[in-house]
């Protein structure tokens, strides 16, 4: 369940019952991932297909760490 508010998107994560507030690029990353298991490089390529990216995969990894600690993304 998500609710686009002006400055960010409010997301209710059902398995945890926690509400997260996501700003760009977090919700674009989640949207691009969907349910797929991807490597950072693969995700970076998928994002590059829709956006002009301003940084190399390293920066993407940092954004992913945040999503992992919030429980929205799992490291396999």
């Amino acid at each position: 369940m998500s609710e686009p508010l002006d400055a960010f998107t409010a997301v209710f994560h059902r398995p945890s019952g926690i509400t997260h507030l996501l700003v760009s690029p977090a919700h674009e990353i989640l949207a691009a991932m969907g349910e797929d298991a991807l490597t950072v490089a693969a995700l970076h390529a998928r994002l590059a297909a829709s956006f002009d990216l301003d940084a190399e995969p390293g920066a993407l990894a940092a954004r992913l760490d945040e999503l992992v600690e919030a429980g929205l993304v799992e490291i396999l």
Partner: peptide
């Protein structure tokens, strides 16, 4: 007050 700020303040 924009919706985002109102949402956070009410939580």
């Amino acid at each position: 007050v924009p919706p985002g700020e109102a949402f956070v303040r009410l939580t």
